[in-house]
């Protein structure tokens, strides 16, 4: 669905690249996560793929179209939810969707249905200007589904939403993906990425460090651990042991045999820990 080869982008057209030598491919039907700290170049890459930013250097094809000369038709197959919600504040939620729907040449979805999906049912007649930040964000998200896109760009779809709504959004993404929609997901939320993505790319300072599935990454970089809570002479103690390290294994067996164990969890490495381990950088 997407191929990117040796992509470079500089906002000031100098050697100061926001994206440098980025290459990846996304097959149809995949959820691809683009992970990285703020300023890594995630939105820039997405901007080039959607034609918002002009391609400067590299080869990019999106949904079978060469991005060098974008055909307007291409946008019938693409949906994009923006990081910063951008809707007409002077128009109602429904008017926003209805107007946008008219810009496509393909059948579009019913605005009311979309509003309901994102939890804005009954809010259709309210002007978007009166919406809260989260509501605007959901409206922007709903709008990106209007044309039943085959390829769906999501820039921070859950940022700033309360956990309940974030999980609704996650559910919608999963559902769409099951219907065959390819998703390009940009985020710095590792939990979301972990749950949704078939593969993730770690990007820092415009550079992709690695691309793999969360499962492989955990196998490769993650060390599973056991966290034990036990009573030691009346005092409660918590300790973590590696399940691979021989010394840790012995110690754990010792505690199990001699102490009064309260709780015991196996702890998988999180994507976040792996990110820090691989890149040496925090995900802020």
């Amino acid at each position: 669905m997407i191929t990117v080869q040796n992509l470079y982008h500089s906002y000031n057209k100098d050697d100061n690249y926001a994206v440098k030598d980025v290459s990846f491919e996304i097959p149809k039907g995949e959820v691809f996560g683009f992970l990285g700290p703020s300023g890594a170049g995630k939105s820039t890459t997405q901007g080039i793929l959607t034609g918002l930013l002009q391609l400067q250097k590299g080869n990019v094809t999106v949904a079978g179209y060469d991005v060098k000369e974008i055909k307007r038709k291409m946008f019938n197959q693409i949906g994009m939810s923006f990081e910063q919600s951008n809707v007409y504040s002077k128009m109602t939620a429904k008017e926003n969707l209805k107007f946008y729907a008219k810009l496509f040449d393909v059948p579009t979805r019913d605005p009311d249905e979309l509003l309901e999906i994102v939890g804005l049912e009954g809010k259709g007649k309210i002007r978007a200007g009166e919406f809260s930040k989260g509501m605007k964000h959901r409206l922007t998200f709903a709008r990106s589904m209007l044309n039943n896109p085959e390829l769906w760009f999501l820039d921070e779809p859950t940022t700033g939403l309360d956990p309940a709504i974030a999980s609704v959004i996650k559910g919608i993404v999963k559902e769409q993906n099951e219907k065959g929609v390819t998703v390009f997901l940009t985020t710095h939320n590792m939990y979301i990425a972990d749950e949704l993505c078939d593969r993730v790319a770690f990007i820092i300072d415009g550079d992709i460090h690695l691309i793999d599935s969360p499962k492989n990454l955990k196998l490769e970089y993650g060390e599973s651990k056991v966290e034990v809570e036990y009573g030691d002479n009346g005092k409660l103690k918590t300790e973590t042991f590696s399940t691979l390290d021989e010394k840790d294994k012995k110690k754990l067996a010792d505690i199990i045999a001699k102490q009064n164990i309260q709780t015991m969890h196996t702890k998988e490495a999180t994507l976040e820990e792996i990110f820090i381990k691989v890149t040496g950088r925090e995900l802020i």
Binding site: M80, F82, Y88, L103
Partner: peptide, 14 residues
């Protein structure tokens, strides 16, 4: 300010 032109730019309408 509202950033709506971006949304317009990724539709089939020029």
């Amino acid at each position: 300010k509202e950033g709506v032109i971006k949304a317009y730019a990724i539709t089939p309408s020029p």
